[in-house]
Design a protein around this nucleic acid. Structure first.
Lengths: 149, 149
DNA sequence: TATCCACCCTGTATCCACTAGAGGGTCAAG
DNA sequence: CTTGACCCTCTAGTGGATACAGGGTGGATA
């Protein structure tokens, strides 16, 4: 009933992405019209909406596949779904912690910066390796000549 | 002076990654030994250390390239470096905000879950599209048969 | 009927930053 | 003379799409 463009529009998906999900086996291949256009049903619409919501919540395509498999079997325990979501929250927590640490480090560098010249730039100093010896300047990350030394 | 394995070990990089940085133009090609092994100098070591630190702080390879270019020109203002770092902090802030929103949504779902069967799983319900009509169950994201209407 | 245009098709390449593997060469020790 | 650790080049794969080339379809308009 729906052509791919309309399906894409209704689910906030790009047309290429819909075809990509078909190739990946997440969305079953629909019937075709006489002109070889994909003709989608409401069930396809529902399934694609589910996929998009799960992706928006950050689930990987593999996790989405698992969730869809679980949803197909109404009698199984909800525990497996819970486990996937819990794992996902733990991953998110780890990412947030990593980003916070990074942010702190960068802000610390920025706070030190007094807008001088590169030669005295504290940000670059912080990036440069510690304990250089015997070079012209204590921070020297300039490109060695190809094939040098 | 250093073979690639030793350089990699000292900078916490994989050997393949060192070669990758060379292909990408971040690390200049070193001299070769008689047996065609890459022979690195201390300048290479410094430069690779810089690259790794910047990457650890989440800068993209393009940003690293920019930072290295800036570091090469000691007389320029530090402002450009500051700008790159500030942009990066803003990106991190956006990512953290996104992840926090995601996390909240997922935890809300998990809190509702009462470990029943899939048929009554609130997590799956939350993922399923709103306003379904005329199907056997109000949530139906099961795979339509290939080629089915 | 011709032409236009929006839409659809398949197939392939691209993005990022690596990582892995095939298939082989080098070099020092035993 | 063989073992084994290291090195080489080249190619392909990861995730999750996105973009494009080169063509077909179908409805409205001139």
């Amino acid at each position: 009933m729906l052509l791919i463009g309309e399906l894409a529009r209704r689910t906030g998906t790009k047309v290429e992405t819909v075809r990509f999900y078909e190739r990946e086996g997440l969305l079953p291949p629909p019937k075709r019209t006489a002109g070889n256009y994909r003709a989608y049903s409401n069930r396809h619409l529902n399934r694609l909406s589910f996929i998009r919501r799960a992706r928006d919540l950050g689930f990987t395509l593999d996790q989405v596949r698992e969730l869809l498999d679980l949803a197909d079997d109404a009698n199984r325990s909800c525990a497996a779904v819970d486990a996937i979501a819990s794992t996902h929250v733990a991953e998110i927590d780890r990412k947030i912690a990593d980003l916070n640490a990074l942010r702190e480090e960068l802000v610390r560098l920025l706070d030190q910066c007094e807008q001088g010249t590169i030669a005295h730039c504290l940000i670059l100093d912080a990036l440069a390796p510690a304990g250089l010896e015997g070079t012209a300047h204590r921070r020297d990350v300039s490109a060695p000549d190809p094939g040098r030394e």
